[in-house]
Every structure is written in structure tokens, then in C-alpha cells.
Nucleic acid binder design. Structure first.
Lengths: 180, 180
DNA sequence: GCTTTCTTTGAATATACACTCAAATTTGAG
DNA sequence: CTCAAATTTGAGTGTATATTCAAAGAAAGC
């Protein structure tokens, strides 16, 4: 499966096109046609590089989340404030992608169960990171108490995301700060 | 636009069919065909009673929310605990409809802007009720502080709803109680 | 029983979608 | 230059969708 330079470039063009389409038209408006037109590519070419439309969308969302991760390599020690800050940055910087993420989370579970599995795992890891950071920060020995707080904190952050979709005037940052 | 008895009965059958379809197949699986088959009705009959599929779905969701409202008539005084309890009851009793509600909230804003408008207004009223209840309960004269707390509380509840979709083992009630 | 209003039918419309595939073309290593 | 591997084309497939409409059929008031 070695790729030529042309293939790699096209792949990038498709990812950029997907990101732009998502920002402009949302998840539903981001059809294969829309992506291909933006990327200057025909469907067959798309499917030579991606197994499905979903995969391209998910790649874009994943990259955006990683871009705000304080320790994307898994090394280093998270602090709760950093994790919250990363969430807020994601939400403010790429609100359209944040919406797509939630859309998959809320919608996906009914689907084929493969897409939702990935979101589920991603969320589990996030709960763990929050739990660790909180336990460390508050000096908690009771890990289940830390997890309880982590779940609540993450729920609030995701709820705030929904709130901003419905009312963009809400000051997410201010609310998020009050969690720490 | 007076209706005959037959029309009223058919309307009820369609609403029940819609509710059942939503519970079994989610929002996406709830096609017009699915609704009509369950209700034992042809499409033309559906459109004689509802202007659109969306309208039927929204009616079902609205009725379910009203069913857990502590003061559906608008009279009486809410207490924060009651409002939280209503939310939890809705989430536990009709998880599929709760998901549909969030799905519209997260997805809708890109659409035609008419469906989302109704969700937005519904949410605004809810923030107000929470704000009033909190201000009264905590004896706050600063209404903006009460509103801040209300927004945060509602965000957490909605976030918990998302969490239960991804991980049904989460104890929403316990988390929700800790908010009061 | 007549007449108007409401209800039901069900085929038709229109359209949108993700995805496939055989053939033509381009790439780049040796 | 050669040739196998990678890429691109673009028409085509299959399927599903919400909604419409003219015509036929019940329901109720008088």
C-alpha cells in the first residue's frame, strides 16, 4: 500500500475540503459531492484513499481534538485546568467540529455500532485523564470520588457545548473556569 | 378545519406509532414509511393531519416533556429539586425521546432554522424557570448570579444525558442529586 | 337522502445519497 | 526506457427519502 506523492497530496486536499465543508454546511450538508467538488476530485479518487465518508469526517475531528491536547503524545502530566482549557479552546476555535463530535455521540449509537464504538472509547480515555488529573490535584486517595467528579465535570463541559450551539452569546470560558 | 371523530383517532394512532418507532429505531430510522406502517395508514392520510414528519416527531417529544413537568400549567412554584427530578424522570423514563431532543438541538441549527427556533425558545424558558427557582431557593437578590448557576446546572444535566447514551451504566440520578 | 366537509387511498414525483468499477492515465524506481 | 504499482476518471448502480394529488370513500348536519 505504498503511496505516491500525488496520493498523499490528494489525501490532504480531501481532508481540507472535508473540514471546510463541515464548517460551512454542517455534518448533513457535507455530502460526498460537496467534498469532491471542493477538493477537485472525482468520487472514485476519494474512495481510493478513504474507505468511507465517515472515515474522512472522523479523521478531521480527531486531528482537531489532538491539536488542542496539552500532551498529545501521552507523556507528561495533565492538570485539570489544562484539560478544561483544551476543551474550551476546541469549542471556541472549531465550533463546527465540536458540533460534529457531539452529533456523532448523540446520533451514532443507533447506527452500525462501529463509529459510536470509537467515540465511546475516546470518551472513556478522556474520563480517565480527568480522573487522574483531579485525583492528583486534589490529593484524593479515593479514586472513585475523583471519577465521580470527572464525570460530572466532563458532562458539564459537553452540556456547555450544546448550550453555545443554541445560544452563542453564552460565555463558555467563564462557566468553565468556575469548574476548577 | 373542524375534524371528524375518525380524523382525531387517526391522529392519535399516528402519534403512538411515531413514539414507538422512535423508541425502536431512533430518529433516523423513523421514516414516514415506518410511521405509516405502524399506524396502518397511507402517506396521504398522514399529510392530511400533519404538515410534516418533523411536526409529528416534535409533538411526541413535547408531550413527553410536559408529562414530567411538575407544574405543566405554568401555575405553582418550582423548586430546584423538582426541576432536576423532572429531568431525571424524563431521561430514565423515555431515554429515546431524550436522545431525539438532544439530537435536534445539536443537529438542528444548520437546518431550516424553524425547528431549531422552537428548541431554542423551549430552552430559554427552561433557563428562566431554573433561574427563578434557584434565586428563590438560595434567597439570591442578584438575578444574574442565579442565572449563571441555572445555565451551569442545565448544561450539566444535558451533558449527563449525553453521557448516559455513551455509557448507560452511569448513575444519572446520583450525579444529578449532587447538584442541589 | 342530499350535500358539504372531512378522510383515505396509493401510485407518482422528484430528488438525493454513498458507493462501485473498468478503463485510462500518471508516477517513480531500477 | 520499461513496467508494475498507484492514481484518476466519470458514468453508472442501487436504494431510500419526504411529499403531492386527484380520485374514491366515509361522516355528519339538515
Amino acid at each position: 500500500m505504498g503511496r505516491y506523492r500525488a496520493g498523499i497530496e490528494t489525501r490532504q486536499r480531501i481532508l481540507t475540503a472535508t473540514r471546510d465543508a463541515l464548517a460551512e454546511s454542517g455534518l448533513d450538508g457535507t455530502t460526498l459531492k460537496a467534498i469532491c467538488e471542493r477538493a477537485g476530485v472525482q468520487p472514485g479518487s476519494f474512495y481510493n484513499l478513504f474507505p468511507s465518508k465517515e472515515e474522512a469526517v472522523l479523521t478531521v475531528v480527531r486531528e482537531a481534538i489532538e491539536a488542542v491536547d496539552p500532551h498529545p503524545d501521552g507523556e507528561g502530566i495533565d492538570r485539570p485546568a489544562e484539560l478544561v482549557e483544551a476543551f474550551v479552546r476546541f469549542l471556541e476555535g472549531q465550533p463546527f467540529l465540536a458540533r460534529v463530535y457531539l452529533q456523532i455521540a448523540v446520533t451514532g449509537a443507533v447506527g452500525d455500532g462501529h463509529l459510536i464504538g470509537r467515540i465511546r472509547r475516546h470518551r472513556e480515555r478522556r474520563v480517565e485523564r480527568f480522573t487522574d488529573a483531579i485525583a492528583r490535584d486534589a490529593g484524593l486517595t479515593d479514586r472513585s470520588e475523583a471519577q465521580r467528579r470527572a464525570e460530572l465535570m466532563l458532562a458539564t463541559l459537553e452540556g456547555l457545548a450544546i448550550a453555545t450551539f443554541l445560544d452563542p452569546t453564552i460565555d463558555v470560558r467563564k462557566h468553565a473556569q468556575s469548574l476548577i
